[in-house]
């Protein structure tokens, strides 16, 4: 069974250069090779998604995840972090991605951030 998570974030409207901190809580346990949280800048169109910038916590945990486990994290935005943009056919934005590396498709819990001025 794949694990699932709750992603609790203390500051969902950080400014460039600020630290985004929070906690990953394991809602449902399961097999996992490792767990990390990524702070990602995302390019998205209807058909494609690219992540040109990805900042990782490194492994917060390795091995099987049990329900109720929790892991604190803190990731810092670059000082020149670009703001969110929406256009007719795409968007640019930042998000947090709690990712469990698994045999087969990975499990994710993602949360979009709004970068303040």
């Amino acid at each position: 069974m794949s694990p699932s998570f709750d992603l609790q974030v203390q500051n969902e409207r950080p400014k460039p250069g600020e630290t985004v901190s929070g906690t990953v809580v394991v809602r449902q346990g399961g097999r996992s090779r490792s767990l990390e949280v990524l702070l990602e800048f995302v390019e998205e169109t209807d058909d494609y998604t690219e992540v040109p910038t990805s900042i990782s916590t490194g492994h917060l945990h390795t091995g099987k995840l049990e329900a109720g486990m929790s892991f604190d994290f803190a990731l810092t935005l670059p000082p020149d972090a670009l703001p969110e943009v929406r256009s007719s056919n795409g968007q640019l934005y930042w998000r947090l991605d709690a990712r469990s590396d698994e045999l087969g498709p990975d499990s994710h819990e993602r949360r979009r951030l709004v970068i303040g001025p």
Partner: peptide, 12 residues
Amino acid sequence: APYSYAGDCLSF
């Protein structure tokens, strides 16, 4: 408006 950006799947 969008700012100038040269990306992999979206640019302005």
